[in-house]
Amino acid sequence: MKKFLRTNEFYVAVILILLCVFIGIKSPVFFSLQNVFDLLRSSITMGIFAMGTLIVIISGGFDVSFTAIAVSSMYITIKILFAINYEGSFLVALIISALIGLLMGLINASIIGFFRIPTLIATLGTQSLFHGFLLFFIGSKYINNVPDGMLRFSRSNLITTVTPTGAITGLQSGILILVAVVIVVYLLLRFTMIGRNIFAIGGSREAAERSGINVIRTQFFIYGFVGMLAGIGGIIHGAHYKQGNPFDLVGTELNTIAAVVLGGALVTGGRGTVLGTLLGVALVVVMNNSLILIGVPSEWQKVVLGIILIIGTGIPAYQNMQAAKRVKTNLAE
């Protein structure tokens, strides 16, 4: 089983490399520093969302509301900052958005934890609830600029380089936030008891309860944390596009879920790795952004994503089904 997990990540890595090499050969632009920086920049939001989704999936749950949380946190934060005319650091925007996300995550947690409502149905419900709340009560108007702090953040780069055409391009600083989130999630899952509890609940909820794990408290942590990550991802997304679009993101949750599942996380819970998820995100980002470089029209992207998702979930599912059929008998040969 451990071997299988390793090969799963290995497969994703191999497919990713082959895809990159193939695209690179057909279109050398792919390996240009500018394109690589663009790809990395595109991975930031999805990467952060994927870390949250990974945690939920390991715990045996399913969350489709994080995009609604992200867009709500982002939009509300921008409105607040404009309302108080705040022009200071991006950090403030980040914190406000994260707190709003946390709050919404806790709403998810209460519904799931106290009432044990199936997570997919609960979060489908809250997706509609949060987004509807945003659009009806907060606002549905497109905001075509963002507060100064966010603007400065979106223009800040870690490394800058000059392209052959003379334009200045760089690695957006948001990547640091992604790196921080990845490290935190890795440490959380690997070295803390909360991480153990998350894996335990995903492996067997009943056994976890009997071992004295407080499942509801763990679920509050999970959905609260995921909400917070959604808030962080949302505000970075807003900064990148320099706009507050209340219709943004919602409907794209599938991309993130696809990335996590392709990265080898088991939808029935209990298994999943940070590395696999990162590879999955890279694969989806490359597909979404670079298929066009090799002449695949943009309208085919969804078809390709669908096929990859079906194959990516189908192979392990089929293997599991076959393995379940193989009953062990103590055969004397």
Binding site: I111, I117, A122, T126, Q127, S128, L129, G132, F133, F136
Partner: peptide, 11 residues
């Protein structure tokens, strides 16, 4: 508002 209501209702 309906969107909000449907979400609230299902929950």
């Amino acid at each position: 508002f309906k969107m909000f209501s449907w979400g609230a209702l299902i929950i």
